[in-house]
Design a protein around this nucleic acid. Structure first.
Lengths: 224, 224
DNA sequence: TTTCGTCTGGGACAGTTGTCCAACTTCGAG
DNA sequence: CTCGAAGTTGGACAACTGTCCCAGACGAAA
């Protein structure tokens, strides 16, 4: 087969492993299944990875990073903060229903990490990453909506991650779209209750223009 | 070894399997590990179970039933509904922190079922079981607190399961007791907001003015 | 006591797993 | 062109997996 640099092979194998795990579960992500998916020989695997665990570690870091990035792109465009929240949650839910396997993989990797001593520091980082991504989203959303949070953003971010995790699990189990949407309505109400209008003149962004501002360029440069 | 009836052997093996999974994860629950934990010979396994999958199916049913039972025993004793809710959530959280492996096993079994075609109907039943157990709890709690829910109990039950699942996952990942307690405070507030005093005078408890008042958490000391 | 269905245990089977090796091929620097 | 490093390969290894078979051992009915 073609001659490929070591670094390319690493990422090719990781991407192949992600496909295998999505399709058949983490249990099926054997070295042979992965190299078959990547159209490589078995020996290539241990040429670039010292062990399967080493590859798993890189895979998880890669996939968690991508997940946080995806979250950061889901800014709601609603006029008021409640609508913006609901739309962001809907964006996530649409993502879930259109690619359920992806979120399923996230959970499987989490539990795999929790059971693997060499990876036991990863779950903490994984959730810290989620929380800070959502917190950044909340801060941006509040500025756009001309409100401020009456609780620490970190706490509210954790509430949101809590709810999306819970909704995801239940939906993966019973695929009840309507029930999930009712829970998301509830969540948007409850979270929006922890916001209040900014005192006049105190705002960084003038309220009226924020309300009518087009949504185009906002999400880009906000990377924590 | 002693002569044991087929039924006894079944439950002994299932209990041994639960111990193995708790200790080492579902991927370590091999037939050999299970019979070793139960002090049996390997052949005994296939004498009472046609296959490992058949045992897994029984194990999940057994363990999910026990989980729903445990939920039903966690009725809050608070006078107002908000306090009762918070106490019930605290009971669950104490259970989680004192036996984290148990909830971890629940998730692992869920994901195992989702990936096993012959078991794919189990997750739906599992969550239906959780939801109805919590719904029963909510109905009892409302009667006890002299209130009624302003939304269908089934929806509220789903919200609660959503939140406990989410809190559990995050806590398993980062063991942040304080943050979890703040989320549970939030949940109790938000859920209690969907209750209202019974219209007639048949309420056992005087109208609680603190019903929907957000309350800061009186966090107990947390380790770390 | 004999019989017979129920239980037990050791061992075997074929398949899969992670890891490694020795041999082979390619390629660019000297 | 030479040569050594980098890349590639099929095959092997020992360990482990789920499952099965058969020779027994037990206990109650006959």
């Amino acid at each position: 087969m073609p001659r490929i640099s070591s670094a390319e092979r690493r990422s090719a194998l990781i991407e192949a492993a992600v496909r295998v795990i999505s399709r058949d579960g983490i249990q099926a992500a054997t070295t042979r299944a992965i190299v078959a998916e990547a159209n490589m020989s078995l020996a290539s695997f241990h040429y670039v990875f010292r062990s399967r665990d080493e590859m798993m570690r890189e895979l998880i870091a890669f996939v968690v990073g991508a997940e946080a990035d995806a979250a950061l792109r889901s800014i709601g465009t609603g006029r008021d903060i409640r609508t913006a929240l609901r739309e962001a949650l809907q964006t996530y839910f649409d993502l879930l229903t259109s690619a359920p396997r992806h979120e399923q993989v996230m959970f499987e990797l989490l539990h795999y990490s929790l059971r693997t001593p060499e990876l036991e520091d990863l779950p903490r980082q994984q959730y810290a990453s989620y929380h800070s991504a959502v917190a950044a989203l909340l801060t941006t959303g509040a500025e756009h909506g001309g409100v401020r949070w009456t609780r620490p953003v970190d706490d509210i971010a954790r509430m949101i991650v809590t709810i999306t995790d819970g909704v995801t699990l239940a939906w993966l189990a019973d695929h009840d779209d309507a029930a999930a949407n009712r829970v998301l309505d509830f969540a948007a109400d409850a979270i929006a209750a922890y916001s209040e209008p900014l005192p006049a003149g105190d705002s960084v962004v003038p309220s009226p223009s924020a309300l009518t501002r087009p949504r185009s360029n906002d999400a880009k440069e906000m990377h924590r």
